[in-house]
């Protein structure tokens, strides 16, 4: 990678011999610009949720309360408000910590350290994604997985969320049927915003894997700095940052 573009620039030519106004590289500055615009997208989505709530408080009163949004945990039917989502939040925080430790190891040119922490970050991201898949499938297919949202020509936006379902049939023919749907506007916001966040986590894991591959191959070691880890790190922390707000405005408030 030691092409002409990675050559050190003469300090007297840069900024006419002065100092850079921002003192960050082009790539990092552009990552920040991207994150600001992406942050505005998420900010806009969450503000739209607030708009829907305030525009019709009577209607929003039928929306599930934060702590009631998700009350399941795997392998049990015990109602456990917030526990599973708290676990997801914690996973994301921990993977953010491993990411910042990878960046720190990169500053010491500690290739092994970067590999270790970056791998743990990827694992954390995958656990989060898996958890979200389980959460969504529980919403859509019911806690016992015997509820088909495709039944009766329903669409996924008519999820069982907040709706009523009952067990029908006899003996071995027992199955669950939806008798009424939950508030669809809420479901639209819920699935769109958490889905859009999940998509960010997914791309974040991909970026981390690509950079991890380069780290293992020694690309950044030869380049002389691990700034690329820092740049994908910014994106990864942003994903954690967004989840902090999604967690508050969907599961707490």
């Amino acid at each position: 990678m030691a092409g002409a573009h990675t050559q050190q620039m003469d300090a007297s030519t840069a900024w006419g011999g002065g100092t850079s106004p921002f003192k960050v590289s082009y790539g990092k500055l552009m990552m920040w610009f991207f994150l600001v615009s992406d942050g505005l997208t998420f900010g806009g989505l969450l503000c739209a949720l607030g708009f829907a709530k305030f525009a019709n408080p009577e209607w929003a009163a039928s929306w599930p309360m934060g702590e009631e949004v998700f009350t399941h945990i795997p392998f049990t039917h015990m109602p456990a408000p917030l526990i599973y989502v708290a676990f997801m939040t914690f996973i994301l925080i921990v993977s953010s910590v491993t990411m910042v430790l990878a960046v720190e190891a990169g500053h010491r040119m500690d290739k092994k350290g970067v590999i270790k922490w970056l791998m743990l970050t990827v694992v954390g991201g995958l656990i989060f994604l898996g958890s979200q898949v389980w959460e969504w499938s529980t919403f859509i297919a019911g806690p016992d997985g015997n509820l088909s949202t495709w039944h009766d020509n329903t669409t996924l936006q008519h999820n069982c969320y907040g709706g009523v379902y009952e067990v029908v049939g006899e003996h071995e023919h027992m199955h669950t049927e939806i008798t009424s749907y939950g508030p669809t506007l809420y479901a639209n916001f819920f699935f769109f915003i958490t889905g859009f966040h999940g998509f960010h986590v997914f791309t974040g894991v991909l970026f981390n894997l690509l950079v991890l591959r380069n780290v293992v191959r020694g690309v950044y070691h030869r380049r002389g700095h691990y700034e690329m880890v820092e740049k994908v790190g910014l994106y990864w922390h942003f994903v954690d940052l967004v989840w902090v707000f999604v967690f508050t405005f969907f599961y707490l408030v």
């Binding site: 990675t6 050559q7 082009y26 790539g27 990092k28 990169g106 500053h107 010491r108 691990y226 700034e227």
Partner: peptide, 18 residues
């Protein structure tokens, strides 16, 4: 010498000691 301001070494504190 190429004059580009995108990949310059002064850009950030990419290194620190133990």
């Amino acid at each position: 010498m190429l004059v580009r301001d995108d990949i310059v070494e002064y850009s950030l504190d990419t290194h620190h000691s133990d």
